Computed example of a mutant assay.
Amino acid sequence: MPRDKRLPLTEAVARYVRDGQTVTLEGFGHLVPTAAAHEIIRQCITGLTLVRMGGDPLVDQLLAAGCVTKLVSAFVGNSSAGSLHELRRRIEHRDPEPVEFEEYSIGGMVARYTAGAAGLPFAPIRSCTGSDLIAHNPMIRSVTDPYGGGEIHVVPALNPDVSIIHAQRADHAGNIQAWGMLGVQQEAAFAGGSVIVTVEEIVADDVVRSDPNRTIVPSHVVDAVVVCPRGAHPAPVQGYYDRDDRFQRAWSELARDPAVLREWIDRHILGTTDHEGFLAGLGPEYWDRLEIDEQLSVPVNYGRPR
C-alpha cells in the first residue's frame, strides 16, 4: 500500500522549509504555488534564497515580508501588467535594504534545473552569447568543447534545498498530474532536496492510472502533497480557473507605495490563518469572472493485454 503523503499546507511548510534555505517556487505564468509562498510569509521564515524562472507578485510579497535576501531568476516583471516595484526598490535604490540578485537567461535557468535534475555538475548553453550577463554573473563560465566546437558557456546545476510546485491533481501517494503550460515543474521537482506539491484536488488512484502520461512527477520524488484549491491565484490553472488580469494590473499600482503593499500583506496574508482564510477575504463572488468553460480532450486508448 503506497504511503499517504497528504499534509496540510501549514504542516508541509513547517516541516520542510527552514530559515536560510534555497527554495524554488516554480511555475512559469501557470501553476504558480502562490498559496505556498503566502504560508512561508505567515510562518515568518527568513533569509531565503528564492529561485524562480520568472517574476510575479509573489516575489514582491516575499521581499516585502522580509523572507528573501537573494533572488535567482531570469525574467523579473509582473508579466504584461507592469513592474514589480518592491523588487525594483531593492535593486535600484537598496530601499529599505538591498537584495542580492543572480541573473540568468530563461534558457540558462532551464539548463540549470535540467542539470540539477540529472545529477550533472553543469550544463552548456548558447543563450548568453553576446549578452551582458556574462560580465555581470561570474557563475556563467566557459569551457572548451571536447568535440572541437570551440568555447561554450556553461551554468552550474541547480539543486534547491526545497522545491515547491503547483499542479492540477494528484493521488494520495503524491503521483502528480498536470497539463497545459508546464514550464520547468518537472525539472524543479527532480532537482529539489525536498519536494512539496500543492494541487487543486486529490483524485482516486484509478484516475491517475487511467491517464499515466499526465503524471509529471512520480510519488517517490514527492515528500508532501497538499490539497490547495485556487492555490495558484492570480496565475491560472488550466481546466480550473483563468488568469486574474485585474489583480495583476492592480498589483503594479498597489506595490508602488511600500506602505500600501505592507498593509495588503498584513490584511490578506498575516491577517489570515491559512489559505482558506485568504480566499474568504476575497469574497465568494470574486471567482465568478475567473470561471472557464469546459473543453475536454478526446479519449486515448492505451490498450491492455488480453
Rank of each mutant, 00 (worst) to 15 (best):
V59H: 03
H233D: 11
A224P: 10
G29R: 05
T46Q: 07
A115I: 08
A115Y: 06
L63M: 03
E200L: 00
A115F: 06
R112G: 01
V143A: 08
Y16K: 05
P2K: 11
V217Q: 07
Q43P: 02
D223Q: 14
E26I: 14
C128H: 10
V225T: 14
R42E: 00
I292R: 09
D95P: 08
D257F: 10
E100I: 03
E291G: 15
V13M: 12
D244T: 08
R304K: 09
F75L: 14
R141S: 14
E285K: 11
I216G: 02
A123T: 02
L270P: 11
A188K: 05
D19C: 06
Y286F: 09
S297G: 11
F101T: 02
R42Q: 01
Y241F: 15
V51R: 00
D242S: 15
Q185V: 12
L7T: 09
V59T: 14
L84T: 04
R18A: 10
R15K: 15
G150P: 02
V13T: 07
V51N: 01
T198N: 11
T34Y: 12
S105Q: 07
G271V: 13
A118E: 04
L62Q: 04
R249W: 09
L62P: 03
S163C: 10
S79I: 01
P124D: 02
E102N: 02
C228P: 02
I269G: 01
Q295M: 14
V195G: 04
E285I: 05
P121E: 05
E201T: 11
A189V: 12
I269M: 10
W264L: 01
F190C: 07
S297A: 13
S73L: 00
F75P: 01
A224R: 10
R169Q: 05
D266Y: 07
D293R: 15
A37F: 00
D171A: 07
V99T: 07
N213R: 12
S73P: 04
G281K: 03
L31V: 13
Q61C: 03
P138D: 13
G20P: 08
I152E: 03
E253W: 14
A36I: 03
E100F: 04
P8Y: 06
I41N: 02
G66M: 01
T198Y: 01
H275F: 15
H85N: 12
A167G: 09
T272A: 09
V154A: 04
A224L: 13
Y113V: 09
G174I: 04
D245C: 06
A35C: 03
W179I: 09
W251I: 05
L63R: 00
H38Q: 10
E151A: 12
D206E: 15
D145V: 12
S142Q: 14
R6K: 11
F278M: 12
Y113T: 06
T10F: 11
E11V: 15
V13R: 03
V68S: 00
Q186A: 10
L48P: 02
V76G: 02
A259C: 06
Y113E: 06
E11G: 09
Q185C: 11
A74L: 05
A232F: 03
G116I: 09
N159S: 15
P299M: 13
N301M: 15
V13N: 05
L9S: 08
H172C: 10
M53W: 00
Q295F: 13
E86V: 13
P229Q: 14
A35L: 08
D95L: 14
E294K: 13
K70C: 04
I140E: 01
A189M: 12
I152M: 10
F122S: 11
E187Q: 15
E92C: 12
